[in-house]
Every structure is written in structure tokens, then in C-alpha cells.
Design a protein around this nucleic acid. Structure first.
Lengths: 134, 134
DNA sequence: GTGCCTACTTCCCAACGGTAACCGGCAATT
DNA sequence: AATTGCCGGTTACCGTTGGGAAGTAGGCAC
């Protein structure tokens, strides 16, 4: 395929379109499969309604920019409700919708898996890196 | 925090370290929460052992570069086994380890959720975008 | 010698994410 | 009156990541 005579690369070209994975589902997965998205959802599901700054404190290491961007996407996708209280100084609260709660539940299994297998993964990495270091 | 007098941004600074989320677990989540990782794991769990090119065909839209990179990471983390058959032309096969299978099972719930809620999310986005377009 | 096969690697460029600074609007302090 | 502080954001800059396309290895078929 790719080589001197092959003018296109993305493997969509040689594929006979297996119709295996629905592109709309892929798109949703692309949104969900994001580190900050998963962390924000997890924090909100554990702590309930939170203000911006509190959410920032609990979502380990996130920058303001990414937090704003992440919650905006979640709001757009109907996973989070953003409530603006018109006071000075500003007060904005975030909480999961029912849809957001259902996603958080689905993601829970992944968090449990990760917590349960941290050591195994770390061991595998050490092993791999040692073999490479020959 | 951030402002004229604030010299640092990443919110780790103002945080009193809630010790809520284990950084090692966060790291694992950071690896798993990746579009191509999730797709490759899904394809391998559905089709069993696959060659590089077949995997590329089934993983909708992935580039060679990202496929190579993704399977290398999965191999390093002990989720995938990479078997090189020393023949010409080259033949390399990939399959999930038991650990990889267990992760694919945990991710299955997310795929089901995504497939089940595609329409709801699309509707929410249309709604959000229309309100913005005032 | 030229073409071909597969699984990569490399180059270039566009998009993403982090860092840190700036903003708005009002109230309390100096 | 001017400065400081509060909170939830933008904005500018810049290094890293990811995509597209072409190049590579190395042996076999023509």
C-alpha cells in the first residue's frame, strides 16, 4: 500500500469498510476516551455538585484552560449541568445529569480495573524496559 | 492565584493535596483513556489474534504511525503479546494477554453506553449549538 | 534489475495542551 | 481615590503530539 507507488496512507483506503465500528459511536468514544474527561466525571460523581475552583482542586493537576474546555464539552454533550449564580464574585456550580451519572457508572469499572492492576502494569513496564536495555 | 502577582498556574499549587486520586492510578487511566488504545483493544478482543495490516483495516481510520505506537505501548504495559514470525515478507501477530482481556471487558461497558446514547448526545449537542447561535 | 510484499520509520506540518499572564466587576482596605 | 482581592474565566506563547505521505529493509518473483 504505502510506498513509492502508493499515494494515500490512511488505511481507510485499502479497507473494504467492514462496517464494524459505527463512526458515530467512534466519535463518542473519542470524547469519552480522554484523561481529563474521565477525571472530571469521576470527581463530580464522587463529590456531587461543585464550584469551578473546588473542581479544580479535586481534579489532580488540571489547568484552568483544560478544566473550562472539558466542562464545556460535557455540558454540550448533556452530561453536566452548569449553573451560574449572578453574584459578585462569580459563583458557578457543576453537577452531573442523569446521563452523566450513567456514564460515570460505566467508567467506574475502568477505574476499578486500573486501581487493581497498577502494580502488574508497572512490573510489565520494568520488564519491557530492561529487555530493551540490552 | 493566577494574576499579576501569581507566578504559577497549575492548580496543584493552591491545592492542599486531597490525596484523593492516586497518581499511579491517574497514570494508568491516562494510558487507557485514549481513543486508539480503546479501539485497538476492542478490535483485538472481538477478532482474536491479528496481523498488523488486518488490525489496521479493522481499527477505523488509524494511521500506521499511531497503530505502531499504540500496540507498542500495549505490549509494554503487558496487555498485548507481539509475535514476530521471521519470514519474508514480515509477519507480526498481535493478541491480548489475560490482563488485556480483563481490560477489554471493563471497557465493554463504555462501548455499550456509547452505542446506547449516541442519539441522546447528538440531540444535546444540536440543542446547545442552537442556543449559542442566538 | 525492477517490482512487490509487509511492517515499520521518518519528515513535515497542523492541532492540541500546558504555562502564565490578563480581564471584568464589585467590595473592602489603605 | 487608588489598590487589593475574589472567582471564573480568556488570551498569547510555545513545546509536544498526531496525521499524511513518502522512505526503508530484505528477500523473492519476474
Amino acid at each position: 500500500m504505502y510506498g513509492t507507488y502508493h499515494k494515500e496512507t490512511t488505511m481507510a483506503v485499502l479497507r473494504n469498510y467492514p462496517a464494524d465500528l459505527d463512526p458515530r459511536v467512534i466519535d463518542v468514544i473519542g470524547r469519552v476516551a480522554d484523561k481529563w474527561t474521565m477525571i472530571v466525571l469521576d470527581v463530580l460523581s464522587e463529590h456531587g455538585e461543585l464550584r469551578f475552583s473546588k473542581l479544580a482542586q479535586l481534579a489532580s493537576g488540571i489547568s484552568q484552560k483544560m478544566l473550562t474546555q472539558t466542562v464545556r464539552q460535557l455540558e454540550r454533550d448533556g452530561l453536566v449541568i452548569r449553573t451560574i449564580h449572578p453574584v459578585i464574585p462569580p459563583k458557578v456550580e457543576y453537577r452531573l445529569t442523569d446521563l452523566g451519572v450513567s456514564l460515570a457508572e460505566a467508567l467506574c469499572g475502568v477505574w476499578v480495573w486500573a486501581a487493581h492492576n497498577v502494580d502488574r502494569i508497572a512490573a510489565s513496564r520494568r520488564n519491557y524496559d530492561n529487555r530493551s536495555g540490552d
